[in-house]
Design a protein around this nucleic acid. Structure first.
Lengths: 214, 214, 214, 214
DNA sequence: CATGAATGAGAGTTCATTCAT
DNA sequence: CATGAATGAACTCTCATTCAT
């Protein structure tokens, strides 16, 4: 059994609206490119309310992360199911991860962009713990496959993770260029490409990497 | 023979200093997080000089790209050498690309961060042309290998490229976290890891992907 | 009965102070010669407050006009009194107009100076409507006199108005020169001259024009 | 015999071009609304040249006046012709003055606008001397008529002048509004109106004023 | 003699935040 | 408890002018 402790920050409706507005704006315009007035307007609240509720713009970003960070944590129930093969387990793992990235696209985007600037975000205990947990899950899945003799030895979870996430994020961050190159004219086409071709590609890549004979 | 025309924008020393300062600051603090005063101070010039030489902060960013963009273009001499195997060619391709990303780390970083906000950068003709050229080179290398029967058919250059670049950039953008997880205490250790383990991993990944038998 | 609707823009004390400071400064130093910092200092408020309350320096000027523009509208009660002769009516008209120009000297000055540059001011509906109304009143008074056979036919309200206003404004705009020529040493002397000699002259001029036999 | 001393400031071609550009720009955009860069661009010269040739922007304005000021001085040959009646003399006077204002429209415009701000212009000896000379000419013409018994006694040249010039300038400064009210759609219509209707009106006004019997 | 390069000063505006109510 | 009012600081950019060449 796996217990999951969810720390639910108690928030009222307005606070939630502010966070939602902030998430959208930060991910599309960047943290520095978004003013608290933008957020207040989008959330339909008074400007002063942001300082009032969150202390400052910086703390708003941190709170946003703290609040959303649980979505970064992999759901492991299906992964740790013992009645499946290592390959099936791997597929579930990858699907789970991609789904999480798709669901939390805004947050991942913010993290990618602001993480390099506001390093604090990347090294906050809450975030590193989750990331380490995820890397551990990936490590567990790989080790299980190694034990079973179906995955290559010396497979590095950190590098596997970098490829899985990096490939996906590359599509998030170069959207404008790729839509242009792939000659997509609607948002739907792009999202569909991510869900199908890109996801298949990531599956294939990781599987190839784990089974490839040098 | 491949001729390469390098358009050298004629700049004086001060202009070059400004661009260099801007590159460093934009890549570490973001475009919106960097003030023209920061740049002027770092470049040791008067604030007014940035408007004077580049027109505006926005145009400074564009000029920075135009000036640096040639570094994005793959050198193809070694790649198109006919006396090597497809595997050797692939290795050269990957090394060339990784080297380019390492050399232009600042620009890639800025592009990754600002590209999502200032979409103009990603879809400027100069940039898209270069990117298309690079994708074409990758496509050529892959197709040669397919013709020779050593690479899988249906290999997609765009996806291969996304994996190659995405994996690398993931290390650039999560530096703080990864340094922490990998327990590196110096910059050198990290750069060394990128040059060795990460580079090897990318080589292995792409090769696996192209030769993997489903 | 003539009803007059006064649209009172609701303003707080600080806004009023800003407008008053702006009126003085714009009329003495010109719009472009006045900085928002000058206005803020004169109004004893923070610089940011001007943008805060009026949006921009340009909009401050527009608001100033909108707010003061009612003063441009002739009070017609006395003019349309039926129990007076056309000559008496004309005298009241002229006195009313001169009084309005004296009372709103600052605004007239700004309008005269900025109107040629910021043409928008001169052709704004609010302003043109009032001016047309005034011209109509002048036309009515003249026509009444023509009907009564005491004023010349073919008298043109626009030209009459130009003479009335132009003569007056000439004294406003050449104050420095005229004070020098007339050897006045105090402000009071000048104002007194305007109220007496100049006003008499305008009366005489218009009356002469309307009754002059060619 | 009337001797006229023309002080010809020696200027080269570029200086003349600068003055011409400045006259146009100052009259349409105002002194403070015109930058030296605007002038340099319009005159097709280097920015530094304005300071170099004229010392400063302020001195450029002064030089412009000094250079153009001779145009303000009435040509008196025809006026002082002894073989004409006082009425003919008056007509010539008015025509001469209106023609001067039309010819030097730009300068009159600048003077009207900047004179209230830069009082120095209005009280410079060169300017006041010319103005006094003009007033004297007007006075002479009027006195001659009074002597001949055809003009009213107590006619004040300063007030007559204010009416003549004020009426004319009113049309210059309210051009946008008047074009709108008079429903003129071309510049030519307006200029034609000034040359015909307005000029006639001024003639009539002054004549009426001088002959009007109270 | 003329000018491109450079600059300090100041322009209008927006910023995140504070505070009295 | 929530907010309109207010503000100091900082922003980008333009200004007139200077000066070495």
């Amino acid at each position: 059994m796996y217990y999951q402790i969810i720390i639910q920050l108690s928030m009222n409706e307005k606070q939630i609206e502010i966070l939602e507005a902030a998430e959208v704006l930060f991910s599309t315009k960047g943290f520095d490119g978004t003013s608290v007035r933008d957020i207040a307007k989008a959330a339909n609240v008074n400007v002063a309310m942001i300082s009032y509720y969150f202390g400052s713009k910086d703390k708003l970003l941190e709170t946003l992360f703290e609040d959303r960070i649980s979505g970064f944590k992999m759901k492991t129930d299906a992964i740790y199911n013992k009645n499946i093969s290592s390959f099936e387990r791997l597929e579930i793992l990858i699907d789970t991860y991609i789904k999480a990235m798709n669901t939390n696209a805004g947050l991942y985007q913010i993290l990618a962009v602001e993480g390099t600037i506001k390093k604090r975000l990347l090294i906050s205990p809450a975030f590193t713990d989750l990331k380490k947990f995820n890397l551990e899950v990936i490590g567990n899945v790989i080790n299980k496959g190694i034990e079973e003799g179906v995955f290559n030895k010396n497979s590095n979870p950190i590098l596997i993770h970098a490829t899985m996430m990096g490939t996906f994020m590359n599509f998030q961050m170069n959207r404008s260029f790729l839509q242009h190159v792939l000659e997509f004219h609607t948002e739907e086409e792009y999202l569909s490409y991510i869900e199908n071709e890109l996801t298949d590609h990531i599956h294939k890549t990781i599987k190839a990497l784990l089974t490839y004979e040098e």
